[in-house]
Design a protein around this nucleic acid. Structure first.
Lengths: 354, 354
DNA sequence: CTGAAAGCGCTTACAG
DNA sequence: CTGAAAGCGCTTACAG
């Protein structure tokens, strides 16, 4: 090994010739076991099919001896079933990471392979991934979140496989699993209200993402329901920590009126908290801050961040569960609504543990 | 929609009968276009193959009119090539999320579909995923990280497809892309040393993960190279933020001697920072803290966290690039070493920006 | 309990 | 530039 200036070490591996030897097939296994291909197939894949115990063992032994690796493409072609599901996810942030964990657990438990499509900011890839999944004949598709204007272009009847949506989307007709973000926003505002706050600020990207819009609507709904005076300042077009930091810093410099800052995600809250700290604004004494999603990080910030915990992992798990049921021809709830949970911490002055 | 107490809303979708209508195939397209199946195939897939422009257009029009979706399993079976790669990743945390972004960008650019296997703490799933990928006849496999004792059970010669490793692993013979963690540990220690620190603590899970071991070795290497007196306290068996918080809290209660805390990842550093804050220890005045990986979060903590930035995204991108080259029969560097970069921030008292 | 054979939907020499 | 045909590696009625 020899490290170059550019950080790349040398030492080339031998050039492998293109692998062209015919793979060992079930035909080879059958021959070795002295049975027909049909029997070999049944002995290996259909555990319930009546095959003489001895025969089955011979086949299995032969397969092992030959190092037989069944060809899932051939199997899928013959069965019109791939035992795979396609998953579309916007990006691999902490929120979707939790969702992916749930998805992984469920797919693994059911012997399904997961084809992953990350749109990574380029929502145009969404359709491209769905098309790719369809060509690969996945048994079902899970579409996680989507902004307002980005819908699966076709209605459910035109989709050749079951589709389940996770996260509020404008796609009428599809089974969907979502969190009650209106209620979450409502709960967040009520919590801050109970601490005495009357002047609010909401930090968000924009209304194109339903989750963020609904959280805001829930907050507004609660505030209006009080029948008392309040104010809400909207800080929008905020894409991430950096945007949040800048805007809150600016606000602090220009007489930031709000005493309660509601950030549409913990990431936005993180930027806001940093800005407040740098501006010498004390939390929660001067201003309270809340976020959504309850990232693991949030409990270790100082002050630790109060957040609405969303059941991302459970949504992922449930999404695959629904898909499985649909694939098997079972009915599935058309609209499943999970609830978020308030986790109060130091940023709102209501708790003092980690 | 009607939300139940358990958070599940009712409203069942109609039961769809198992889809059994034969899919429309290239045969249908050929018939509709008035050409042979062979010509239809060539017109649609082999852009370079000599097909009369008019004929090609007819085929394409017919395919569109029929809503033809080529069957990738059949294609793969016929070509012995699936245009897919299998990716094994330990978990979807921020570090691997960055790696996945790089992987996604590269696979998408090359028209490869990504099959994802998350081991999620259960490293036994590693082999299971590799087997599943092999059955699906992926064109190549990318194995991201792995602890000391978890190796692909077979040597490269026995793997029927190209494999590329990302992250230091004990798998002799495979092409590997890694970061120079020894150098990173060295750099981290040098930075702290230059700030005057002589008593260190290292927070880590254990040596089973090479990255963490190497960072420690690099740190020790630098300290020993100074020829001056120093001390290093090892806080190991620390799995995450919570463990780090507890152990550092305990240490503070029992006279924590170290003035420089080196955490094997930013996550560990986060727990340590929280513990120090709660113990009334000032950072960086009383103790300095450093982490590795440079999560986005780290720059927004207060004090913001000094960290060694690892090129995770680039590793992911390069991994797929190498795989592509191997698949095409090209040689690839056997050992590629990328370098980490120091990002100094407030936790070590060397910077004061965000 | 077992086997022969058709079929899944493509691609690709091979022969015009 | 085009077509007929074999073949990719499985599964599954159908018939013993």
């Amino acid at each position: 090994m020899l490290t170059l200036g550019n950080g790349v070490a040398m030492g080339y591996s031998r050039l492998m010739p293109p692998r062209r030897t015919k793979e060992i097939s079930i035909r080879d296994v059958a021959r070795a076991a002295g049975v027909s291909v049909a029997t070999a197939s049944r002995a290996m894949s259909k555990t319930d099919y009546p095959v003489a115990a001895g025969t089955r063992q011979q086949v299995i032994d032969a397969a092992r001896a030959l190092g037989f690796v069944p060809n899932a493409m051939a199997r899928g072609l013959a069965r019109s079933r791939s035992d795979s599901v396609g998953v579309v996810i916007p990006s691999a942030n902490a929120y979707y990471a939790a969702m992916m964990s749930g998805i992984e657990a469920a797919t693994h438990a059911q012997g399904l392979t997961m084809l992953l499509g990350l749109t990574n900011g380029d929502e145009g890839r969404r359709e491209a991934y769905i098309t790719a999944f369809l060509e690969r004949r996945v048994d079902g598709i899970l579409v996680c979140a989507a902004a307002h204007d980005q819908r699966p272009s076709r209605p459910p009847e035109e989709m050749p496989v079951p589709v389940v949506l996770i996260g509020q989307q404008p796609n009428a007709g599809y089974s969907i699993i979502r969190t009650d973000n209106v209620a979450a926003g409502h709960t967040a505002a009520r919590h801050l209200w109970s601490l005495g706050h009357r002047r609010y600020a909401y930090i968000t990207p924009d209304d194109a993402w339903y989750d963020f819009r609904d959280r805001r609507l829930g907050m507004m709904g609660f505030l209006e329901s009080t029948g008392e005076p309040f104010s809400v300042e909207l800080l929008d077009e905020i894409r991430g920590e950096t945007d949040a930091y800048r805007r809150v810093s600016d606000a602090c410099r220009n007489g930031f009126d709000a005493t309660a800052i509601v950030a549409s995600t913990d990431r936005h809250a993180l930027g806001a908290l940093a800005a407040l700290a740098d501006a010498g604004v004390r939390v929660p004494e001067d201003k309270a801050v809340m976020g959504f999603d309850n990232y693991i990080t949030s409990s270790f910030l100082r002050p630790s961040l109060t957040s609405m915990s969303m059941p991302a992992m459970e949504m992922g798990r449930l999404g695959i569960e629904y898909l499985r049921q649909k694939i098997n021809g079972s009915a599935v709830p058309q609209d499943t609504v999970l609830q978020a949970a308030l986790v109060a911490r130091q940023s709102t002055g209501s708790s003092h543990g980690a």
